[in-house]
Design a protein around this nucleic acid. Sequence first.
RNA 1: GCGCCCGUAGCUCAGGGGAUAGAGCGCCGGCCUCCGGAGCCGGGUGCGCAGGUUCGAUUCCUGCCGGGCGCACCA
Length: 564
Amino acid sequence: MVETIGVVEKTRRSIAGMLKAAFGSACRKGALPEVEVPDFVVEVPREKDHGDFATNLALVLAKPARSAPRRIAETLASEIDLRNSPVERVEVAGPGFINFHLKRDWAFSELPLILRLGENYGRVNIGGGRKVQVEFVSANPTGLLHMGNARGAALGDSLASLLEFAGFDVSREYYINDAGNQIEHFGRSLEARYLQILGRQARVPEEGYHGEDIVETMKGFVRQFGDRYLDSPPEDRRRAMVEYALKEKIGAIRRTLEEFGVVYDVWFSEQFLHDSGAVREAIDRLRRRGFLYDHEDALWFRASDFGVEKDEVLVRSNGVPTYFAADIAYHMNKFERGFDRVINIWGADHHGHVPRMKGAVAALGYDPEALQIILMQLVRLYRNGEIVRMSKRTGQFVTLEELLEEVGRDAARYFFVMRSPDSHLEFDLDLAKARTNENPVFYIQYAHARICSIFRQLEEQRRDPPDPDRADLSLLGEEPEILLIRKLADFPEEVAASARDLAPHRLARYLHELAGLLHSFYNAHRVISGRPGLTEARLVLVGATRVVIGNGLRLLGLSAPERM
RNA sequence: GCGCCCGUAGCUCAGGGGAUAGAGCGCCGGCCUCCGGAGCCGGGUGCGCAGGUUCGAUUCCUGCCGGGCGCACCA
């Protein structure tokens, strides 16, 4: 696979090497005691005045070396060999940081690299080809997708893309809850609507599904089957209705998600776990391993062995397995399929489920650390400055379909992914559909379109884009140019960090900052000018920027428009 | 009551053991003879409170206060 070792990472490693060499040299001279070098960082300081890189080596060395950090820093600094390095000067600052100021052009070599790698620029190999499954949305197929599902869809899909880009072998999966209690309620609700449509007295049960969508579904059913089921045994007709409705509902969910840019590798049926005996096998395994017991006719799992407050029922006294039992079988199946990591994205209202699921994974004999659960906080919709109330009971909620129609796919996805999953998401519908500078997604896309426009301009003048390896990049050097290049060179590390932290919102933020730097540069300097050499160099710069913005947008599932 | 998440600028949110804590929006003032003004530039007395760990805490730990969500033989 392609892997990007960018100039930032190379330089970081080289500085770390210089520091170790300087320490060794100081030891030989007796200027510092020969202690083991503790973990230290070479980082990019927040403050520009603190150089391009800085290290805390002297600070962490203070204790083992039994000396003042500033003195250690001075010693190290004097031993650093700057020959054949991009470092221009070194200084000791603050409590004992060593700051490295680099030559102005130290990162320029990243530009031809970006253009050469193109859509592969930013690929990193932190995954090493390990198999990861991301399971997300997995909404009940009894209704429509709501805002929580939509957030999960955007988050899960972006995360999966990010992990792919970071070198994992990723599979996207949707778990279909097509079994159990809610299907029972679903059947009774369908039945009631069916009878109502045909003029009979019937009521949707209290705990059933009251949405209008189900009425529509049953109208279709009536068109197809008429009154054929009016007098058939309730069990039979409910089974037929459920089968019909599930097929329709799941198809609709799949289509909506595809419209949202989300395509799954696997759709996994809960019912299959029951039918195939997988649930029984999972229970048997837990029993063999000694984690089950009977109590009051029910079968219990010793969740309390795993730090959970109380034990959990796996099989009810009526003989029916619980959802949890199926979920255990499902996770056993996941690990049996050979995934090294299993990531689930859940709504925060399921957080209580996390410890017992991990406990179950451990009880089955797998590493509970291999199961990672991302909890998303709730989404609040705002329109005209007011919260949009949603109620599942009355079936009154904004669906993903409606959202897509109202604000469009790009805005919707960006809004869902721009915040940390931990944060309650305030989704301002008016802002999301605003085609103005208030809207952050357009700001990024506009930067991309602007660059495309420059290249169109070039084409109209019948000029060719420059060869990045031959352009004289030393002509670059204005502040906005330097800042832009530095930001571009950060992309591979940003991908790695976002993947490591399972945090697509980092990438969203990065793109916004990158777009800002492009706009600043654009406003301060002309790309196509009367100076051919400078024009070429700047075309390389904006061309590279276009690549990075395009790659970032793609990872977030957003389009990169050439014109807007 | 117990558990999980969150309290950072007027609002919405990043950040997260280090040196002067950031962005967007809103508000005020500037910038188009010029590649797209959906843009740019300038304007900021903010880490809920109290302890603790540390050379150093907004970041880690404990307690308290405030908000959200859980605590079914539901899913």
